[in-house]
Write a protein that binds this DNA or RNA. Structure first.
Lengths: 229, 229
DNA sequence: CGCCGGCGTTAAGAAAGTGTTAAGTCCGTT
DNA sequence: AACGGACTTAACACTTTCTTAACGCCGGCG
């Protein structure tokens, strides 16, 4: 049931009802939904979250949607799908010229929204941040989903890869057992710490030159694991 | 009069009046307009002209617009802007999933049309990737829709060809099951992974010298497939 | 010292995913 | 109506991955 191409989507809308509706539709399609009630919060959230797509209501209380777009486009190319009650042509033209990827007028159908979203995603194959992280002689290429050690490619199973990515995204910091288990195995497996022991062993065997005295994949006894350089 | 962003645009529409209208609007914006009255002619024209964008009326007399899209997408990634009198959601979803870049319902405003066109052009900054890619002793010619292995031409069915092209366009990267299924079979078949198994088997049998230990068409268990050189 | 809890390691069984083949269905052609 | 090609569906053997359990190690503590 785990969706491997789950996308992070940020919904910026002041109306609670619309946000709920969008959440239902989008989560139904297997995406992760985050909400922001105002434009200002939206921009902050967008920076923190690095979503794969933003859905923006033009009629925000604190900031005109077009201003949001303008500011957002100063530093991000993440696609924005604009939602609006206004049918006027001028609004559409303005939003599209400010860099919106698409424009939907309310009321909209769930099917159309999802189709437009797919269309947007299809032509935007992860333009975001550098997808490659490295430590020691190991290099992770997130966009290709591959891991190299030196010049040799290393094959990781999907759990191993997920585990490595999770640690890498918190590089230097401890990630607790529960955090890891919740992220990768789901909230029903939060106390199965033995999963971690065997999968960490596998990872170290594949990535460390001396698996019994690990230099990068470290243990914090009783707490969790962390990855250092 | 000389527009530095002058684009070649192909209008495929059976109604003379609409064609005239589009010509006026588009030429007014400094583009070069070409017309085709039927789907069949449209495909030929598109091949000859290599336009920067196609504007397609869904209601063609000789060929459903969706069929046009499907055929066109077999060998071209040129953006298609769909025009339709039908407001139904199903039509929109279908067209967008077949690879249309945008969908406008008639009647439309000149301003909106031009804005959508600009939006389409902006995110399609000359993606003119070479129509021929190769790996190992295999060569794919997308413009001719042919595949050779060494000196011998290999016949691929349309699904096989689509699958190969998809993997080739992400060379070296893992393409997930869902991605493939969504692109080729549509979003309603995202979990029919058994399609992939049999078609991959066919592809390997036709393209790999040792189909049981593939060297180019690789499997990532639980994730997807990828093509490497 | 001997016990205990947390950890690493290994191996075997269970589960999930994959390759292969063949039969069934659909569709356009003759 | 019969044929052929392409796609779908089903069945089975096989491989990879995940889970589970057993055991040994280490350091802290009574």
């Amino acid at each position: 049931m785990d969706n491997p191409d789950k996308k992070r989507i940020l919904v910026v809308d002041d109306e609670r009802q619309i946000r709920k509706l969008l959440r239902v539709i989008l989560e139904g399609a297997g995406h992760a939904v985050h909400e922001a009630e105002t434009g200002t919060v939206g921009l902050v959230e967008a920076a923190a979250l690095q979503p794969d797509c933003v859905i923006l209501d033009l009629g925000l209380p604190d900031m005109d949607g077009c201003v949001f777009l303008e500011k957002y486009r100063e530093w991000s190319k993440t696609p924005v799908l604009v939602l609006s009650a206004r049918h006027g042509e001028d609004d559409k033209v303005k939003a599209l010229d400010l860099g919106a990827e698409d424009y939907l007028t309310k009321p909209f159908g769930a099917g159309e929204l999802l189709a437009r979203l797919r269309s947007v995603m299809r032509r935007n194959p992860h333009v975001a941040e550098s997808p490659v992280v490295s430590f020691g002689d190991v290099e992770i290429d997130r966009s290709a989903r591959t891991v190299r050690r030196g010049t040799q490619e290393v094959h990781l199973t999907s759990k191993e890869y997920a585990l490595l990515c999770l640690l890498a995204s918190h590089r230097g910091k401890v990630v607790t057992h529960r955090q890891i288990l919740r992220e990768i195995w789901g909230p029903n497996s939060e106390d199965q710490t033995h999963y971690l022991r065997v999968h960490m062993a596998h990872l170290r065997k594949k990535l460390e030159s001396t698996p019994d005295t690990p230099r990068h994949l470290l243990t914090d006894a009783g707490v969790g694991y962390r990855l250092v350089d």
